[in-house]
Amino acid sequence: HNLTITQGKLFFHYNPKLCLSEIHKMEEVSGTKGRQERNDIALKTNGDQASCENELLKFSYIRTSFDKILLRWEPYWPPDFRDLLGFMLFYKEAPYQNVTEFDGQDACGSNSWTVVDIDPPLRSNDPKSQNHPGWLMRGLKPWTQYAIFVKTLVTFSDERRTYGAKSDIIYVQTDATNPSVPLDPISVSNSSSQIILKWKPPSDPNGNITHYLVFWERQAEDSELFELDYCLKGLKLPSRTWSPPFESEDSQKHNQSEYEDSAGECCSCPKTDSQILKELEESSFRKTFEDYLHNVVFVPRKTSSGTGAEDPRPSRKRRSLGDVGNVTVAVPTVAAFPNTSSTSVPTSPEEHRPFEKVVNKESLVISGLRHFTGYRIELQACNQDTPEERCSVAAYVSARTMPEAKADDIVGPVTHEIFENNVVHLMWQEPKEPNGLIVLYEVSYRRYGDEELHLCVSRKHFALERGCRLRGLSPGNYSVRIRATSLAGNGSWTEPTYFYVTDYLDVPSNIA
């Protein structure tokens, strides 16, 4: 807008934040220059609390790290170098490059900038070799853009010569660093050979998330399962459950009422301010606690030095998902009996873990797994792929695949051998790939016309006998059925096997 004052003059007093240069501009645009008398524009009460600059400061050096910015700028000295009290560095987070010096300023003089007072450097006698002032900004957020400017702080001049310097606002972004852990990993099994893994992005990506790394490792069953005799009275049979499938998407929606109208769909109840505040506090606490764990609990591995020492970490090797089922080394339970199943799973520490690289999504279907087997899954978020990966501390989750139908069934015939004193040795093959492992066998036998009897055969007993022995049988026709019990439950009964026990007292003698 054009402003013209045809008559009258300007009068400025007691404006401590208004620089004289701005008042002189007002004289020019209003056409009143030359009308004012000496005392109409006070030299001592206008701009006496402001830094009124008329020179431009330029930054000469900028260096960044993930949490620091090192700045240096060209030296500046007023005509009387004693008038320079120091520099004021202003900075704040700036997602967009549209910041002005006066953003967030209120009537009390406060604003949204963080201000650092910096002492002037030592003055050199040689004007050509003056030290460049600077400042190291610490405690910054990774991968965050900051708006920065600097200006001088000078003393009051009796001659009211307006001098000083100020830089333009520059924008500097800190470097990326390792992201925080992925949030809320959930693993479920939808079949006997697959596990579905879902997660949420890290709360602090500290860069642009480029991919996720998912490692999985087959877990050995508890050692007590191999040692305890679950045929003993009072000892509860062990059981394991597989990871249940995901709930429906509708039930997972946030901010939804727990109660549904019987007449149909209901609208979600909005969260109160107290609920939102509580969630923010919980989120802040979780982030602080995660940072504490990362800094205190997890110790970084030592990389190899120039002395030739090897990095103890196993090298990563990509495998196809079809090879995942046989990740671990199978060892027989008892070496003397080769027909026992290889369900003991000690994992070799030198073995390469299978892994998958996930790009542009937060889910993965891990296939080719062994049925009813526990897996430990390790999830890392990465925001750099080359020249070397920059990934987060791992988040861990466990899951067990679903049982395989008929995996616990005894394959092959049940054979028998009759000894003296009416002892019958029953023999059968253990299931080759049971659900988890076989903890015991149930032997059901009966003599024709009598009630059915049951015998429990422990895992250890089966390994020693290759089956079991029935003792003290009365003469007669017998039928026997056997079924295995694994961590997933009972298998199917075998087809009945028949044998006849004679009275050993009636056996004919070869003595003449």
Score class of each variant (00 low, 15 high):
Pro413Thr: 10
Lys278Glu: 06
Glu217Thr: 14
Ala399Leu: 10
Tyr230Pro: 05
Thr272Arg: 08
Ala336His: 15
Val345Thr: 10
His416Met: 08
Trp493Leu: 04
Ala381Ile: 01
Val214Lys: 00
Gly368Cys: 06
Trp242Ala: 09
Gln275Cys: 07
Ser305Trp: 06
Lys233Ala: 10
Lys317Ile: 13
Thr343Ile: 06
Glu389Pro: 09
Pro434Asp: 00
Pro434Thr: 03
Tyr259Phe: 12
Tyr375His: 07
Ile276Phe: 03
Cys468Asn: 01
Gln429Arg: 02
Lys460Thr: 13
Glu351Ser: 14
Ile482Trp: 00
Gly207Leu: 00
Val297His: 05
Arg316Tyr: 02
Pro354Cys: 14
Phe226Gln: 05
Pro431Gly: 02
Ser458Val: 08
Leu225Cys: 11
Phe337His: 07
Tyr212Arg: 00
Leu277Gln: 05
Asn339Ala: 10
Leu321Cys: 04
Phe298Asn: 15
Phe215Lys: 13
Tyr478Thr: 01
Val507Tyr: 03
Glu258Ser: 10
Lys432Gly: 03
Lys357Val: 15
Ser367Gly: 10
Ile418Val: 10
Gly368Lys: 04
Thr497Arg: 12
Leu280Ile: 10
Glu389Asp: 08
Val359Phe: 09
Asn490Arg: 14
Ser248Val: 08
Asp311Asn: 13
Trp216Gln: 11
Ser458Leu: 12
Pro238Thr: 11
Gly308Met: 15
Phe215Trp: 01
Ala488Ser: 08
Glu442Asn: 03
Val296Thr: 08
Glu310Tyr: 15
Arg471Thr: 09
Ser304Pro: 14
Glu452Tyr: 14
Ile377Gly: 07
Arg400Ile: 13
Gln252Met: 08
Ser243Arg: 07
Thr401Ser: 04
Ser344Asn: 14
Glu389Ile: 02
Asp506Phe: 12
Val397Leu: 06
Glu362Phe: 12
Phe419Ser: 05
Asn339Phe: 05
Ser341Phe: 08
Ala394Gly: 08
Leu235Val: 11
Asn477Ala: 09
Gly412Gln: 05
Glu420Val: 03
Thr340Asn: 08
Asp311Tyr: 14
Tyr498His: 04
Arg319Thr: 07
Tyr448Pro: 10
Pro403His: 03
Pro387Ser: 10
Ser268Met: 12
Arg318Asp: 10
Arg313Asp: 01
Asp506Cys: 06
Leu437Gly: 04
Asp291His: 12
Ser341Leu: 13
Ala395His: 12
Val457Thr: 13
Thr494Asn: 13
Asp323Lys: 08
Ser342Met: 07
Lys236Gly: 15
Pro434Val: 08
Gln275Arg: 12
Val424Cys: 13
His425Glu: 12
Arg318Gln: 04
Leu487Ala: 12
Glu351Asp: 10
Gly325Val: 10
Ile377Pro: 00
His454Trp: 03
Asn490Ser: 15
Glu279Ser: 05
Ser268Tyr: 04
Ser283Arg: 13
Lys236Cys: 03
Asp222Ala: 10
Arg316His: 14
Thr386Arg: 13
Glu389Ala: 10
Trp242Ile: 04
Leu237Arg: 08
Ala309Pro: 09
Asp204Val: 12
Ser474Met: 11
Asn477His: 04
Leu426Phe: 07
His454Ile: 14
His211Ser: 14
Asp273Gln: 10
Thr303Phe: 14
Ile209Leu: 04
Lys278Phe: 10
Leu237Tyr: 15
Thr241Met: 08
Ala263Leu: 11
Ile276Arg: 06
Asn255Ile: 14
Leu369Tyr: 00
Ser304Met: 13
Glu282Cys: 04
Tyr259Ala: 05
Ser474Ile: 11
Lys406Met: 06
Lys432His: 13
Glu282Lys: 13
Gly472Arg: 08
Arg471Ile: 12
His294Asn: 04
Ser363Val: 05
Val457Pro: 00
Glu221Asn: 11
Tyr292Met: 11
Ser398Gln: 04
Asn435Pro: 01
Glu258Met: 03
Leu232Asn: 15
Val345Ile: 15
Glu442Met: 12
Glu452His: 15
Val299Gln: 14
Ser492Val: 13
Val423Met: 12
Val324Gly: 11
Glu221Phe: 12
Pro312Tyr: 15
Pro244His: 15
Ser479Leu: 03
Lys271Cys: 02
Leu228Pro: 08
Leu440Arg: 03
Glu378Arg: 06
Leu321Tyr: 09
Asn435Arg: 00
Thr494Tyr: 02
Tyr498Trp: 06
Glu420Leu: 10
Asn295His: 05
Ser257Arg: 08
Gly467Asp: 01
Glu452Ser: 08
Ala488Leu: 06
Leu453Ala: 11
Tyr504Arg: 11
Glu221Lys: 08
Asp323Phe: 11
Val423Ser: 08
Phe285Asp: 14
Trp493Pro: 01
Trp242Glu: 06
Phe215Ser: 10
Asn360Phe: 08
Ser268Glu: 14
Leu232Gly: 11
Ser243Glu: 05
His425Gln: 08
Thr303Ile: 02
Arg481Gly: 02
Thr241Pro: 13
Ala484Gln: 03
Ser320Ile: 12
Glu465His: 11
Thr303Glu: 14
Glu356Asp: 05
Pro475Gln: 12
Glu247Gln: 12
Val457Met: 14
Phe215Gly: 13
Ser363Glu: 13
Ile438Gly: 01
Ser305Arg: 04
Asp222Arg: 14
Pro205Cys: 04
Leu464Val: 12
Asp250Glu: 12
Arg481Ile: 06
Leu213Ala: 12
Arg459Ser: 14
Asp503Phe: 09
Pro349Gln: 05
His461Asn: 05
Ser486Asn: 02
Val299Arg: 12
Glu356His: 10
Glu282Met: 05
Val397Pro: 14
Ser341Gln: 12
Ala407Gln: 11
His461Met: 10
Met427Cys: 02
Lys361Phe: 13
Phe355Gly: 09
Ser342Trp: 01
Asn421Phe: 12
Gly491Ser: 07
Val439Met: 08
Arg483Pro: 00
Glu260Met: 06
Pro238Leu: 09
Phe298Ser: 07
Pro300Glu: 12
Glu404Arg: 11
Gly476Ser: 01
Thr401Met: 03
Val324Pro: 09
Gly264Ala: 15
Gln256His: 12
Asp408Val: 02
Glu378Lys: 09
Asp204Lys: 00
Asp250Phe: 14
Leu235Ala: 10
Pro205Glu: 03
Glu350Leu: 07
Ser239Tyr: 14
Leu473Met: 04
Pro349Ser: 12
Ser274Phe: 01
Phe215Gln: 06
Ala394Arg: 13
Gln384Ala: 13
Asn295Ser: 10
Thr502His: 12
Lys253Val: 02
Thr307Asp: 15
Arg400Ala: 05
Glu452Lys: 11
His461Phe: 13
His294Arg: 13
Ser479Gly: 05
Ser315Arg: 09
Glu356Ser: 15
Glu465Gln: 11
Thr272Leu: 09
Gly472Cys: 08
Leu228Ile: 12
Lys278Leu: 09
Glu224His: 06
Val457Glu: 03
Pro354His: 12
Cys269Met: 03
Tyr478Ile: 01
Val358Ser: 08
Ser223His: 10
Arg481Val: 11
Arg319Trp: 14
Gln252Pro: 06
His454Glu: 11
Ala399Thr: 08
Arg319Pro: 04
Leu237Gln: 09
Glu224Pro: 10
Lys271Pro: 15
Tyr292Cys: 01
Thr272Pro: 06
Lys317Leu: 10
Gln256Asp: 11
Ser348Pro: 08
Ile366Thr: 01
Glu265Ile: 14
Thr494Phe: 02
Asn383Phe: 02
Glu356Ala: 10
Trp242Gly: 12
Glu404Met: 06
Gly476Thr: 00
Pro413Gly: 07
Arg483Met: 15
Tyr478Leu: 00
Val393Trp: 14
Ile366Met: 08
Phe226Asp: 14
Thr333Leu: 07
Gly207Met: 09
